[in-house]
Design a protein around this nucleic acid. Structure first.
Length: 690
RNA sequence: UGCGGGAUAGGGUAAUGGCAGUCCACGGGGCUCAUAUCCCCGAGGUCCAGGUUCGACUCCUGGUCCCGCAACCA
């Protein structure tokens, strides 16, 4: 890796975070993939040798669990999404040079290879650790699938950290009185041999790395404190079936261990580059030049939730295994919908498929997502803003300039007037090219888009100021000059805008009859002469009408409301298909039941707890006193409707604290969705339940 | 609540400690080849409270709000 400005002599790879093959694509995903695609295209425009690769992340517990629920193998479950992604990306102009997945042979073999190297280099050690095990389910319970009592302070704690008490990190096996967080079954410890990666030995290296790293501010700063603090070794194996088998001597995977998903996932970046290289030949693009040579340039575009993996564990692995370190990590912010957090479960999302089905051109969304805010900023999506930006910027500024210029040129000259571009306009184009180059070196796709839009605005200003329509008769030479300039500006716009809106750029390039492939040319093509003759231009971008936006807003609102009411009706509709837990065989004595002090309560006040999805803080009148209780009941119950509701409260449950709010008692509620229990006559608050 | 990131006009985005600028939207006026562009005028802003300073969006202290990760009394 160099720190020379782009273009460098080295070979670049641009990657984006692997989509997890577990659900449909929405605008939140698209933002990162489009940004990385645009960035890669922009690098190409600078003449940088580059490739854009990615792949689906197929492993990990959530896929295993969801596949089991769907009654299919994890492999076919994940593959189905993988294929869907593979089809969808090109529809948005996101064109990977290679798109693989983490379960293919290239990746699994390379992963085992790298792990073996880590072992050979002495970065891996075995350690016997006690792993929590659910004997009834016959299932190991890694990390947060177990909780119990902290051996240091006696507080309730998670398997890996005493989160509520002393805050200590807990090693597997330390926690006392473990139980499964999935089934609630008491867990027992079994001794297992796991493998650890000595990240701690790479601390000095990582400190240097983070100083060299380029990219967005959040990616460069967030890991600092961690890298400069105490680095712990990293357990890289898991007790699971689904994943890359650990490269064991006795036969791979024989001991039932797979690699932690965060080991094989980023290695897909390398594997995918390699697949590309092998397909096109090393003469065209050599993956080893990127990943093992000093002048390979690796640029990761990721979501800001996975910064730590890409700035600590990943460079540690690369360094220890003898690979090139990343030059830049650019972390994108998130997408909100109408100012609220995108939520797939509540259907508050704009789905990739939905957008296309509405018939909008992909370039419009590409433009919106890449230029609405800085890369690391959160960006809000609304159909209103979408319309406004498309109409005023793409239609009004860029589309209108190209259309009026080319139409005028075609009608008056049948194409490009036969004269040279003025020096002033050539200079203005150079200015735009410089802005474009600076944007790329700044990892700012937003500024790439701005460079084009600014030039379009200049074009409108220029043609307006010169009024060629008044000059054709009075000063024909002058008119020719102006229109020649405007046609050249259109050529430049096509070249500059290609990374952001590849198809729009291609159509514009066609309209001016330019030679060559606008996707392949470099920035100097902005000065290339257009065709002497070309036909009448078409509208580049279509305006979005108001009633269209109204309809879209209604659709979205309806859908969100619908999915909320679906959730409400689900528990009753689905009783037949629901897996009901068997009635437990253990009988309890009446005395044991008497130990519970259950009371009728009436909710007095209710307010949501900041930052929690389901929790609500309640004041509950139980006759003798009013209790503050925290309950996770927002799936089914509107916070505003709660006051006045009669509920059943476990009054003598030990106190606990959630999100920093004390909970003094527990409400009884049915099922996963927490359907509240109530009384049907009018027992006053405080009445004992028996 | 722990860790981290962030906050500049209605929406974006700039400003080595030195006149808060710019794009879109908004109000008024003008122009018109074009999918209503351009020009002129106007209204509107540094999250809050302290501090350092001749001078603070910028530096320091405290707070508020938003977001991510973790924790979601089931």
């Amino acid at each position: 890796m160099s720190h020379e400005p782009f273009p460098t002599d080295g070979t670049t790879v641009v990657t984006c975070g692997l989509p997890y093959a577990n659900g449909d694509l929405h605008v939140g995903h698209l933002r990162g993939y489009v940004a990385a695609d645009a960035y890669n295209r922009a690098l190409g425009k600078l003449g940088q040798e580059t490739a854009y690769v990615c792949g689906s992340d197929m492993h990990g517990t959530p896929i295993a669990v969801n596949a089991a629920e769907a009654g299919v193998s994890p492999e076919s479950f994940a593959l189905e999404y993988h294929e869907q992604y593979q089809e969808t990306f090109p529809e948005f102009g996101v064109e990977f040079d290679n798109y693989g997945h983490t379960d293919d042979a290239t990746n699994t073999e390379l992963t085992r290879d790298i792990v073996r190297t880590l072992e050979d280099e002495g970065y891996v050690y075995e350690k016997e650790i006690m792993v929590a095990f659910d004997p009834e389910e016959g299932q190991a319970l890694p990390d947060r699938f177990v909780e119990g009592t902290c051996p240091y302070c006696g507080e309730r704690a998670r398997g890996d950290e005493c989160d509520e008490g002393c805050g200590r990190h807990l090693e597997p096996g330390e926690i006392e009185a473990p139980e499964s967080t999935v089934t609630g079954n008491p867990a027992e410890y079994r001794e297992r041999t796991h493998r650890f990666f000595r990240v701690s030995e790479l601390q000095a290296y990582l400190q240097g790395f983070i100083d060299r790293l380029e990219g967005t501010e959040n990616a460069k700063n967030q890991p600092r404190e961690w890298i400069e603090g105490e680095l712990r070794d990293w357990c890289i194996t898991r007790d699971m079936d689904w994943g890359v088998d650990y490269p064991g001597e006795a036969g791979e995977g024989e001991d039932g261990l797979v690699l932690y998903v965060w080991v094989d996932a980023p290695i897909e970046y390398i594997a995918s580059t390699r697949q590309y290289s092998e397909r096109v030949g090393a003469d065209t693009y050599d993956w080893e030049e990127v990943w093992t040579d000093d002048d390979g340039e690796i640029v990761h575009v990721i979501g800001r939730d996975i910064i730590q993996h890409h700035t600590v564990f990943w460079p540690a692995m690369l360094h220890a295994a003898g690979y090139t370190e990343p030059r830049a990590v650019a972390a994108t912010g998130f997408i909100t919908i109408n100012g609220k957090g995108l939520s797939t479960s509540r259907n508050r999302a704009i789905w990739a498929r939905e957008y296309l089905d509405e018939g909008f051109h992909p370039d419009l969304l590409r433009y919106y997502l890449t230029t609405n805010g800085g890369l690391q900023q959160d960006v809000d999506f609304s159909w209103d803003k979408f319309q406004s930006r498309v109409n005023s910027e793409l239609v009004g500024a860029l589309g209108n300039f190209a259309y009026r210029s080319l139409l005028f040129a075609q009608r008056n000259y049948g194409g490009t007037p036969d004269t040279d571009v003025s020096e002033a306009v050539a200079d203005r184009i150079d200015e735009a090219l410089a802005a474009f180059r600076a944007a790329v070196n700044d990892y700012s796709v937003r500024a790439v888009g701005e460079a084009a839009l600014d030039l379009a605005r200049f074009g409108n200003e220029y043609i307006q100021r010169e009024e060629p329509w008044n000059l054709v008769d009075e000063a024909p030479e002058r008119a020719e000059q102006v229109i020649r300039d405007c046609v050249q500006l259109s050529v430049a716009l096509a070249v500059l805008f290609e990374p952001i809106a590849p198809d729009t750029a291609e159509r514009l390039y066609d309209q001016v009859g330019a030679d060559g492939d606008v996707h392949a040319v470099t920035l100097d093509a902005a000065h290339d002469a257009p065709a002497a003759e070309f036909g009448e231009p078409d509208e580049l971008v279509t305006k979005i009408e108001d009633d269209r936006v109204e309809t879209l807003n209604e659709k979205l609102a309806e859908r969100i409301a619908e999915s909320a009411s679906d959730e409400e009706s689900e528990p009753t509709d689905d009783t037949e298909t629901m897996d009901l837990e068997p009635i437990t065989d253990d009988r309890v004595s009446f005395d044991t039941f008497q130990d519970l002090d259950l009371r009728v309560g009436r909710i007095e006040t209710a307010e949501p707890i900041e930052g929690a999805d389901k929790l609500v803080r309640l004041e509950v009148d139980i006759g003798v006193e009013t209790r503050q209780v925290v309950a996770g009941i927002r799936q089914l119950h509107e916070v505003d409707d709660l006051p006045g509701t009669r509920v059943v409260l476990v009054a003598n449950l030990e106190k606990s604290e959630l999100f920093g709010v004390e909970s003094n008692g527990m409400l009884l509620a049915a099922g996963e969705e927490a359907d509240l229990l109530t009384t049907h006559a009018d027992s006053p608050p405080g009445t004992k339940i028996r």
